[in-house]
Amino acid sequence: MEDKKGRMVAALENGTVIDHIPTQKLFTVVQLLQLDKCKDSVTIGNNYSSKKLGHKGLIKVADRFFSDDEISRLAVVCPNIRLCIIRDYEVVEKKEVCLPDQLTNVVRCANPVCITNNEPMKTVFYVVDKERGIMKCRYCGKEQCIDNIKLV
C-alpha cells in the first residue's frame, strides 16, 4: 500500500519534479513550459492532498532541467512553486521559484492601445513591487498586478 502511494512521485531517474502547484494553475504551468509539445516522458497529476495547499498539482518531467529563464516565467503564474532536481533517483537540488526583475515575452499587456498588442513584438515588463506582484510595461508604462495577468 505504502509502495503504491509512493510510486507516483518517486519513480524518476533523472529530471525535474515541479511540486506545490495550485490545482487551478496546473494546466497553465503545462502550457507555459510547453510540456504539451515535450518529447520526454511527462507525468501530470492533480488534486494530490497537500499539507500546505489542501490540494496540489504535481508534474514530473524525465531528463529535463529547466533554465533560470523558464523558472522565472513559472514565478509569474505561481510564486510559491517548488522544483526538485532529480539525478539518479535522488533529489540533488531544491529550487524555490521567485519573481525576476524583468520579464521578457511572458506577460501580455492589459492595455489594448499598447504597441505590444498591435505589433508582432516581444513584451517587456519590469517587476516594480515583488511583494505585491506589481509589474510595469516597458512600452506604455501601465502597471498591472500578477493576480490578473494574461500570458503571451
Partner: peptide
Amino acid sequence: KLEGAALYASEVTNVPIINAGDGSN
C-alpha cells in the same frame, strides 16, 4: 496613436527617433 510606439521604433533602428506624441502617453 498607440502607446509606446516611439520607444519601440527607437529600438528597431539606428536612426534617431523624435516622439511627436504616442497615444495618450
